Measured scan of single mutants.
Amino acid sequence: MIVFVRFNSSHGFPVEVDSDTSIFQLKEVVAKRQGVPADQLRVIFAGKELRNDWTVQNCDLDQQSIVHIVQRPWRKGQEMNATGGDDPRNAAGGCEREPQSLTRVDLSSSVLPGDSVGLAVILHTDSRKDSPPAGSPAGRSIYNSFYVYCKGPCQRVQPGKLRVQCSTCRQATLTLTQGPSCWDDVLIPNRMSGECQSPHCPGTSAEFFFKCGAHPTSDKETSVALHLIATNSRNITCITCTDVRSPVLVFQCNSRHVICLDCFHLYCVTRLNDRQFVHDPQLGYSLPCVAGCPNSLIKELHHFRILGEEQYNRYQQYGAEECVLQMGGVLCPRPGCGAGLLPEPDQRKVTCEGGNGLGCGFAFCRECKEAYHEGECSAVFEASGTTTQAYRVDERAAEQARWEAASKETIKKTTKPCPRCHVPVEKNGGCMHMKCPQPQCRLEWCWNCGCEWNRVCMGDHWFDV
């Protein structure tokens, strides 16, 4: 396979590697080409510095992935760790964990309700045991953590790749202090920090972006993250068709209702045909949960890209028209025109101005929308079919299609509260000796007794199943 190397943020060049090629071997190839010592090179990928003893497969490097290699003399205490030698983080029983690669970060837990604080980093599902597709590297999971809308060759929703760059020099040479644990960490600028490894760059702020994971991409090709779309790892039924499908869209209502993408497309087109989208002054033209839940309008309007190009163009047109109407304007009634106009409040005669090729020149009556006339309008008909009709959803289907309910059931079956801080902690095999993952707590306690870890627990039921 081919990976592209950008040395000291210059133009990239291809390097041929195998899945079992080590990072140090990659350094040696680059060092020979650039005429520099291999031990002064640092390989940066997806916000993480890659260790010498890791392989291309370990690092989730795919065909035509772009890695950054910078030349920086080692500072005291760094060289041993980078070589894969006596790194205290690798000691058996050590409590410190390697910062998780962005290629394996899962933010789907952050669609849980606000009262489930902490689960994004504490609760991990076991539903990723799908067998890898044919042709994928051994052991590589097909679980997708992110979804994007690819405006490039795909023109559809695709699995996405999370990447990070330095907000100062805009190069992907920043190593994160810690990985993101929720969508806010990724979507809110300057929320996460790190250290830029580019020479002479003092940058410390992280800037995240997404790429389409279905095809090789260049540095400049980015895609918009659709953070309401998630892999259906909890096997929730769709609120409309009641099938279990994946991926799904999880509405931001209190129940976190789930809808499959085909039904979401149908829901949007139906509402669009009836012009029953909601115009929100802050958000724009949007839709609420299909069950009509309060405070559930979709905030990231790129989710409506699921409509496809033709329907999305209609959505944008109707949204612009609705904006004009909300501002007190009118639409030209001549067939084939429909231009938005903003006449004076007491102006009865409205002319669709033909300047700049935008208007048709038609003069019409503001009251009856017919060709302009003197005197009273002959008839004014009330528009028919403008009443909002509820999208029919079966109550039982709505009850079963809740992301929140599956989460709470998982928590109930696989977790116990920490005796000190009461945060839910998952036990997935292993011994009875637990350690609270909350940095402010870190209590060592017994899963069996529910009390602080002691010699009695150690001698009596340390390794009970």
Rank of each mutant, 00 (worst) to 15 (best):
I2D: 12
V3R: 03
F4N: 10
S9F: 04
H11G: 03
H11M: 04
F13Y: 09
F13E: 04
V17N: 00
V17Y: 03
V17M: 04
D18Q: 11
D20C: 07
D20G: 08
I23D: 00
F24H: 10
Q25N: 08
L26S: 00
K27C: 04
E28V: 03
V29C: 10
A31L: 00
K32W: 10
R33C: 04
Q34L: 08
A38Q: 05
V43S: 00
F45I: 05
K48E: 03
K48F: 02
D53I: 02
D53G: 05
T55L: 13
N58G: 12
D60F: 06
D62S: 13
Q64M: 12
I66W: 06
I66Y: 10
V67H: 02
H68A: 03
R72A: 13
W74Q: 13
R75Q: 14
R75V: 12
K76M: 15
G77V: 12
E79G: 12
M80A: 13
M80G: 14
A82R: 12
D87N: 08
E96A: 10
E96R: 08
R97E: 11
E98Q: 11
E98P: 11
P99T: 12
S101R: 09
L102Y: 08
S109G: 14
S110Y: 06
S110H: 09
V111E: 14
V111W: 08
G114K: 14
S116D: 15
I122A: 15
S127C: 08
K129I: 11
D130K: 11
S136T: 12
S136C: 10
P137V: 13
P137M: 12
A138F: 12
Y143P: 07
Y143H: 08
N144V: 04
N144K: 09
F146Q: 02
Y147Q: 02
K151D: 15
G152V: 06
G152S: 14
Q155L: 07
R156T: 15
Q158T: 14
L162F: 02
R163V: 15
V164R: 00
V164I: 14
Q165N: 10
C166D: 00
Q171G: 10
Q171E: 13
T175K: 15
L176I: 08
Q178K: 14
W183N: 01
V186T: 03
V186E: 01
V186S: 01
V186L: 07
I188F: 10
M192P: 02
G194H: 04
G194L: 05
E195P: 05
G203A: 03
S205L: 11
E207S: 07
A214Q: 09
A214N: 08
A214L: 07
A214M: 10
T217H: 11
D219K: 08
D219N: 10
K220P: 10
L228V: 01
A230K: 15
T231P: 13
S233D: 14
I239H: 02
T240I: 15
T242Y: 14
R245M: 05
V248L: 05
V248T: 03
V250I: 13
Q252H: 07
Q252G: 12
S255M: 09
R256C: 04
I259V: 07
C260F: 01
C260P: 00
C260Y: 01
L261Y: 04
L261A: 03
D262V: 04
C263T: 00
H265L: 07
L266N: 15
V269P: 01
T270D: 03
R271M: 14
R271F: 06
L272Q: 02
H279K: 13
D280W: 07
P281I: 07
P281Q: 07
Y285I: 05
Y285Q: 02
S286Y: 01
S286P: 02
L287G: 01
C289D: 00
A291M: 14
C293P: 00
S296V: 01
L297M: 09
I298S: 02
L301R: 06
H303K: 01
F304K: 00
R305H: 08
I306V: 08
L307H: 02
E309T: 13
E310P: 07
Y315S: 03
Y315G: 00
Y315I: 11
Y315Q: 04
Y315N: 01
Q316H: 10
Y318K: 02
Y318S: 02
G319E: 12
V324C: 12
V324T: 14
C332Y: 02
R334W: 06
P335M: 08
P335I: 09
G336C: 07
C337I: 03
A339G: 09
L342A: 08
D346Q: 09
K349M: 12
K349T: 06
K349R: 13
V350E: 03
G354A: 09
G355T: 12
L358R: 14
G359T: 13
F362C: 04
A363V: 13
F364T: 03
C368R: 02
C368M: 02
K369T: 05
A371G: 08
V380R: 08
F381Y: 14
E382T: 12
E382P: 09
S384V: 07
T386L: 13
T386A: 14
T387R: 11
T388S: 14
Q389A: 15
R396N: 10
A398L: 13
E399S: 14
W403G: 03
W403Y: 06
A406I: 12
A406W: 09
S407C: 11
S407Y: 10
T414F: 10
P417H: 12
C421W: 00
V423R: 14
V423Q: 13
V425S: 14
K427P: 14
K427C: 06
K427Q: 09
M434S: 06
K435Y: 15
C436I: 02
R442L: 06
W447C: 05
W447V: 04
C451R: 15
E452M: 15
N454K: 06
R455H: 15
M458P: 15
G459I: 15
H461T: 01
H461A: 00
